[in-house]
């Protein structure tokens, strides 16, 4: 079971209070994009064994969206961060580097 901290309201709770909504930081190709880009946006998802960035929502709590970095193998939660960003914060990436050396090459 994941223990998740919501960066919006500050509650730390177990995962049943939250809901996962898939991979984060996907570029939304829209009008004017090629078929390949559209396919990538709609269907192409990473399925890593290891570090994964996801969108989550505090479903039963404050109702806000946020991002989470976790390990799909050990279920370790590296951290959560604001939904209003295009990429993970540097301090979180540094924390993951320390916990999982070489993860960037693996994904």
């Amino acid at each position: 079971m994941l223990i998740v901290s919501c960066p919006n309201c500050g509650i730390t709770a177990e995962e049943t209070e939250f809901h996962a909504h898939g991979e984060a930081h996907i570029t939304r190709h829209a009008v004017g994009s090629s078929d390949d880009q559209m396919e990538t946006y709609l269907f192409m998802r990473k399925n890593p064994k290891g570090v994964h960035f996801e969108r989550w929502r505090h479903q039963y709590g404050c109702g806000k969206w946020f991002h989470m970095a976790r390990c799909t193998m050990t279920l370790e939660v590296f951290g959560t961060y604001s939904a209003q960003t295009y990429s993970p914060p540097d301090d979180l990436l540094a924390r993951i580097d320390a916990r999982r050396p070489g993860w960037r090459e693996a994904t």
């Binding site: 919006n8 309201c9 709590g61 404050c62 109702g63 806000k64």
Partner: peptide
């Protein structure tokens, strides 16, 4: 008054 979320 109850604090429901950061905007509610």
């Amino acid at each position: 008054i109850a604090w429901m979320s950061p905007d509610e």
